[in-house]
Design a protein around this nucleic acid. Structure first.
Lengths: 190, 190
DNA sequence: AGATCTGTCTAGCAGTGCTAGCTTCCGGGT
DNA sequence: ACCCGGAAGCTAGCACTGCTAGACAGATCT
């Protein structure tokens, strides 16, 4: 049965399209502008079609966020592996993380601010966030005491996320970004 | 004219009542449950009365957040001034900050997560957030290079906020909270 | 060809933030 | 003591939200 295969493929493509459009719309006009009606209109289907793919609007946001974690993992990986020296690599990871948050504020919001209930740390955590956190862990591996590696990663991640999310709300002086990063890196890592 | 005074006083009291009820409701059932109808019902007035006090629902959240910054400033001040040694004082401020965020998640959300557009850092920043940030600066004053004091404070604050907000989303292992705090404090401050 | 079944749409529900416009009632002037 | 102006508050409604029941069409299988 090849028609069924085609059907399934088309369905999967449409699901990706929904996720794409949701992210684009959120990035362009904010998540408040992502209503089921507007989303449906842009994918050129009626509203109920969305609900044949996702159980709720939240599930759509969750799908966007999940893909975001995959993208973040890729970017952190690229940053980490492009410098031989540990310290350069660490700094590159930090910069990549903050660049990601700044470049795609709506995506970052879906991943970290909205209550999307993606499991984390536990065994049933999806691979994407696991991979993203894994990159942070890997970057720290050369400098941390092995037994405290994950703890170290959590602290580093907290500092990065705090910076990203306070900056997002314009509560840090933008012109001091570099000074903050330098201070943070030297303090946290020797 | 004493009747007018009474009127104005009653009006001010009602405004505080609205803020109280909004915060209580948010803390009890989350901000999604804070609708203008439910809010109006609980203060025992009709919906339009809310709009004679505040320009929008967002303005109500903003008022809650602003008062929250005042509370945070008070708690940080108490923590900071109750230990003579700088390091103890710093740790007490950090603990107080995270305790505040954990004890009043909805309030913390209004202050830091929702898009409440409270000015910060700039000259027209309200006194409450200014005072809260001032406490962090004051706590760091003995350990930071004077010229980089505010930068230092921003980094410290970022680490605290990152911890608070990742923990809020259950993305940090709760049982390692103390280990993270110890690591953070020793790394950031000698 | 006829029956079934899958896919999609229209129309509608309950609830949201916010507001226009009516009513009621209090305070002050004659 | 009366009336009247203005303020204060209410009812009712608008345009929107997320979500769904039920109708309808078109493809698939017997």
């Amino acid at each position: 049965m090849s028609t069924r295969d085609r059907r399934e493929r088309e369905r999967a493509e449409r699901e990706q399209l929904i996720i794409d459009v949701a992210q684009d719309l959120a990035e362009a006009e904010g998540w408040d502008a992502v209503t089921t009606r507007r989303l449906a209109e842009r994918v050129e289907y009626s509203q109920p079609v969305l609900y044949s793919h996702f159980t709720s609007k939240d599930a759509i946001v969750r799908a966007v966020a999940l893909r975001g974690f995959g993208m973040l993992a890729d970017e952190l990986h690229a940053a980490r592996t492009s410098y031989p020296k540990t310290m350069d690599s660490l700094r590159a990871v930090a910069d990549a993380y903050l660049r990601f948050a700044k470049a795609r504020p709506a995506l970052y919001e879906a991943m970290f601010v909205r209550d999307v209930a993606i499991a984390f740390g536990t065994d049933d955590a999806p691979p994407e966030p696991r991979a993203a956190f894994g990159e942070i862990v890997a970057a720290l591996e050369p400098v941390a005491i092995p037994s405290a590696l994950e703890t170290y990663a959590e602290v580093f991640w907290s500092a990065l996320h705090g910076t990203a999310s306070l900056a997002r709300r314009k509560r840090l002086r933008p012109e001091y970004h570099l000074a903050r990063m330098d201070l943070m890196m030297t303090k946290l890592f020797r």
